[in-house]
Computed example of a mutant assay.
Amino acid sequence: MQEIDWQPTATVATLHKRARLLAAVRAFFAERGVLEVETPVLGHGGSTDVHLASLSLEATTPAGRERLWLQTSPEFHMKRLLVAGSGPIFQLARSFRDGEVGGRHNIEFTMLEWYRPGFSLDELIEEVVALIRQVLDCDPGPLRRRRYRELFRKGLGLDPFSVDLNTLRRLAGERGGLDMRDAARDDCLDLLMSLAIEPTLGREGLDVVVDYPASQAALARRHRDPEDGEWVASRFEVYLEGLELANGYDELTDAAEQRARFAEDNAARRRLGLPEVAVDQRLLSALEHGMPTGSGVALGIDRLIQLALEKSSVAEVMAFATPRC
């Protein structure tokens, strides 16, 4: 009988180091009075985001046989806790995204997510940077704030907000070696961002990218770009050594707007031939009740540990990464 590869993908020594880093994360939040919470990995709704593939299963519940969704992040449940009056909270949550396997990805992974009622986006950026520096136990270099459209202007010689779609499709197709003739605008921008811009970020310190297109707001508010009044997303992403580490939002609290965005996502899924994802109605009910204003962020803790321990892939800091799970 052929022996199945049963061994862990991380060494035991690495797992000891990982445990110490996770303890440092918990100490970071304990010092700041942020409550650690645990929320379900299963929910009645999943992520409608067209760029994420939610996993689901059939389960027997008090209501009978139901479809439940493995959470792509703990966001929806944590926001319900905010509405219930939890105050600032954080979680090291098991999260799931189908098809995401590679040096930077795993189908099942650990998401560090936290929410700060009353925090501005700038205050949250400062806290994210402080956490990263504590986990790395070194100074990764200066912090630079980079505007999304300026990165495209400098790196690709175009304004992502005004360039015509055919030009964008042609450039994305050339860069990616793909047929992008029918691609949506954001798909072209995402491809160019990942191939031409992201690898250059965080090479001389921490880069924080802000003012993404309004169409990429996801669950964030929107605001006007002071340059020309164009709507942009009130969110940021943090990069180090070409790796995206964190994605933060000035959180959307408007239930009607959130409901409309979920509907837009599922409409886009239908157009693309993707399966629809059940909308989290309990989140919408919570937002109708009233969520406090503030900011929140999701950080890929496996990636941060990978950088801290100087490993080449996230699998090397996970006990059993896919496909050895």
Rank of each mutant, 00 (worst) to 15 (best):
V277H: 07
V50D: 08
D225I: 01
A196Y: 12
L15F: 11
A220H: 05
R271A: 12
G43H: 06
A217K: 12
T253Y: 11
L70Q: 03
I132H: 11
R235H: 08
R269F: 00
E204T: 12
D187C: 05
Y239V: 01
V232E: 00
V34D: 01
L68Q: 10
G87P: 00
G296S: 12
R20F: 04
I132V: 15
E257V: 11
G296R: 13
W114V: 11
L70T: 07
L35S: 01
A10M: 11
L299F: 03
F236S: 03
R269I: 03
E100G: 09
E204M: 06
G300T: 00
R97D: 03
R324M: 06
P40F: 08
R147P: 11
S120Q: 12
A308C: 04
S162F: 12
M291K: 10
R235V: 02
D182Q: 04
L136G: 03
F28A: 02
S47H: 08
G242T: 05
D164T: 08
T39N: 10
A183C: 01
T253C: 15
T48K: 09
V135I: 15
V208C: 13
G173V: 04
H16W: 09
A53L: 12
A278H: 09
F161A: 14
T48M: 06
E126I: 13
D207L: 08
T110M: 13
A184P: 00
L189Q: 05
F29R: 00
E66Y: 04
A63V: 12
S56P: 05
R169H: 00
L171Y: 01
R104P: 01
A59N: 06
D5M: 11
L240M: 08
D254L: 10
G155Q: 10
M78F: 13
K311C: 14
K154M: 08
G173P: 07
L219F: 13
A268W: 07
L283C: 07
W69M: 07
V209K: 06
T61P: 14
R170G: 12
A10C: 10
L42W: 05
V210K: 00
D211V: 09
E127R: 15
M111R: 10
E100D: 13
L156S: 11
D49V: 04
L55H: 09
Q7L: 12
I132T: 12
T293M: 12
V163E: 14
E227M: 08
S234D: 10
A53H: 13
G99Y: 02
L304Q: 02
T48H: 04
A315P: 10
L22V: 02
D228L: 07
D164L: 07
T60Y: 12
M318T: 07
A220C: 10
A13I: 10
A19I: 11
E310G: 13
L57T: 15
T293E: 14
I301A: 01
E150V: 02
V232C: 05
E276P: 02
T11D: 14
V317R: 14
R144N: 06
P199M: 04
D280Y: 02
E237G: 04
R259N: 08
A84W: 03
L52W: 05
